[in-house]
Simulated scan of single mutants.
Amino acid sequence: MSRHRPDTLEHSPLGRESAYPERYDARLLYPIPRAANRAPLGIEEGKLPFIGEDEWHAFEVSWLNARGKPLVAVARFRLPAESPNLIESKSWKLYLNGFNQTRFESLEQVIALLERDLAQAAGAPVTVELFGVDDEALAACRLPGECLDELDVEIDDYTPSAEYLRVGEEIVEETLYSHLLKSNCPVTGQPDWGSVLIRYRGPKLEREGLLRYLIGYRQHQDFHEHCVEHIFTDLMARARPERLLVLARYVRRGGLDISPWRATPGECPPESLRLARQ
């Protein structure tokens, strides 16, 4: 098998007992093609209806300097939504663990190696930033906009249904969010908890229906990135907003968190946010 050839999930490290490496090995990264999950949403490769990124934070990053002294950092990675592959999270963690007992001459060498390996796996350029653990850029903040979570709604359906998405005639520009997002890993079934933000201009979304729709992902099995794309495509089809941004901030699991966002072309990307649960 070639170094970064996408393969089936049956051959991935996900859901398997794994020995954690002590030396650097780029072959541990496991890419997964996005196309198979996008096809059911009517999304064609090369004709994406959105722009966006997958932003990852890694909180368990360490390596040795030239004298063997350990250094630690928090890493921020950004993969473009147009990359043909996402990278399976457990393989990413195993790959990063390979840095723990590997010596590097400089911080710049670590960043260059990460950018090279991750770009080869993703099939597109990946940006890497390393922060000290006390860096103010990592401070937790709150989502902007209006929270939907206090709405008193009755729920008996925990699968996503676009039928709940309804709009009125009034044209508005607003930002809404919920901390009640939950989906499940498509292989292990482990829960993935998160918060989701929706910023749009268009016919006003009926709030109770929107919250029911978002809670509908509670038993849905899919990767974080595809859940966000599912929400984006459903909102575009049902509400037809002029502008739309969908951003999810998933809770850290295994030392990694992921925050995908998708938006209509021309929409400004959100500032980097970290929530208390991350």
Results as ranks from 00 to 15, higher is better:
R5A: 12
P6K: 12
T8P: 01
H11E: 14
G15P: 10
R16T: 15
E17I: 13
Y20L: 11
P21F: 08
E22V: 05
R23P: 00
D25I: 00
D25G: 00
D25K: 00
P33S: 14
L41T: 07
G42A: 05
G46Y: 04
I51C: 14
D54F: 04
A58T: 02
V61D: 06
R67S: 15
R67V: 10
P70G: 12
L71K: 12
A73D: 04
R78C: 14
A81P: 00
P84I: 10
L86H: 02
S89P: 14
L96C: 06
F99Y: 15
L107A: 02
Q109N: 04
I111H: 06
L113M: 06
E115S: 13
D117I: 07
A122E: 11
A122H: 10
G123Q: 10
L143E: 01
G145S: 07
E146S: 12
C147N: 14
V153C: 08
V153G: 02
Y158M: 05
T159F: 14
S161P: 01
Y164G: 00
Y164T: 00
L165A: 03
L165K: 04
G168T: 07
E169P: 00
E173G: 13
E173S: 15
T175C: 13
L180D: 09
L180F: 10
K182N: 04
S183I: 11
N184C: 08
P186R: 08
G189T: 09
I198P: 05
R199G: 06
R199C: 10
K204T: 03
L214K: 05
Q219A: 08
H220K: 08
D222C: 07
H224C: 05
H224W: 03
H230N: 12
R240Y: 01
E242Y: 01
A248R: 07
R249P: 00
R249K: 12
Y250P: 00
R252E: 09
D257G: 02
I258N: 02
R262Q: 07
P265I: 04
G266L: 04
G266I: 06
P270N: 05
